[in-house]
Simulated scan of single mutants.
Amino acid sequence: MTAPGTTLVIGATGTTGSRTAARLAAAGHRVRAASRRAAPVPGAEAVRFDWYDETTHAAALEDADRLYLVPPVGDPDPAAVMLPFLERARAAGVRRAVLLSSSAVPEGGPAVGAVHAALRRGMVEEWAVLRPSWFMQNFTGSHPHADSIRESGTFMTAAGDGRIGFVDADDIAAVAVHALTDAHAPCTDLVLTGPEALSHDDIAAVLTRVAGRPVRHRRLTPAQLRDRLTAALPEEFAALLADMDRAIADGAEDRTTDTVHRVTGRPPHSFPAVAERELRRAD
């Protein structure tokens, strides 16, 4: 592929999008930062973008030759809006797309798994699918877990004793930048984890030590979690998230990979290090 032109980062104010846009801009790449409010991002051109408003798509795609794709949040069928957009992007000259998916969603699986399958079938010339494990920032940023911890010192899951290779969003962004700008695109999916698999009780223990106050993991059944989530999310999506926790409890996410180290040349950050970095920064 020729030298990078403009990279359109969709979800540029989100957890991974903001970090990816910032890293690209800092490295001197031309970045168009897309969000629903066209919020400014240092070093990037801000543009309004809404998955559900096609009138925002053409301006976002102008002169872009690569995309960082964050699916619409909370949509159980993101392919319905993402695949037509990718067709339009290809026609507009986009040659490379990097999709944010999940370690829990295989190619052809539910939700964004259909977009993953379309990329492998050749939706664009060059591609990668990032399949990170659960974000470490879920406990330190703007996620409901983090909000609950700040408000009550507790967070709730239906994951039981299941362990997860939680990953730092900074590491996801570092891999995304390589996938977007390296001479050769991965043209595969990349499962991203941190250096160790931890249970939610382990997470609570680390947060208790770092924050200097008790943090407790409250255990729910999958049905209880689904019912709680349904108050804020579409029922189908709430059921999907509850089923993911059930799978975690059964060991589906108890793994680590060397992908971050292999792609970036450095080891992934540990959860204690990220908690220290982000909770100290917030104080």
Results as ranks from 00 to 15, higher is better:
2 T>C: 00
5 G>Q: 13
7 T>A: 13
9 V>N: 00
12 A>S: 13
15 T>D: 10
17 G>H: 00
21 A>Q: 04
22 A>R: 10
25 A>Y: 02
27 A>D: 14
34 A>T: 03
40 P>A: 14
41 V>I: 12
49 F>S: 01
51 W>K: 00
65 D>A: 06
66 R>K: 05
71 P>N: 14
71 P>G: 04
78 P>G: 12
79 A>S: 12
81 V>C: 09
85 F>I: 07
87 E>S: 13
87 E>I: 04
91 A>V: 12
106 P>F: 01
106 P>S: 02
109 G>P: 00
110 P>M: 07
111 A>F: 07
113 G>K: 08
118 A>P: 09
121 R>V: 02
129 V>H: 05
145 H>V: 02
151 E>M: 09
152 S>Q: 13
153 G>Y: 01
161 D>R: 14
164 I>A: 02
173 A>Q: 02
176 A>E: 05
177 V>L: 07
183 A>K: 09
187 C>D: 15
189 D>Y: 13
191 V>L: 12
198 L>V: 05
202 D>M: 06
207 L>Q: 08
207 L>F: 07
208 T>Q: 06
209 R>G: 06
211 A>S: 10
212 G>E: 08
215 V>N: 00
218 R>W: 12
222 P>Y: 00
224 Q>A: 14
225 L>D: 01
229 L>H: 00
241 L>F: 08
242 A>L: 04
242 A>Q: 03
243 D>Y: 03
243 D>R: 11
244 M>G: 13
253 E>M: 15
256 T>C: 11
256 T>F: 07
256 T>Q: 11
258 D>I: 11
259 T>F: 02
261 H>R: 15
261 H>Q: 15
263 V>I: 14
263 V>M: 09
267 P>Y: 04
268 P>D: 12
268 P>W: 03
274 V>P: 03
274 V>H: 03
275 A>G: 08
275 A>Q: 04
277 R>E: 14
279 L>R: 10
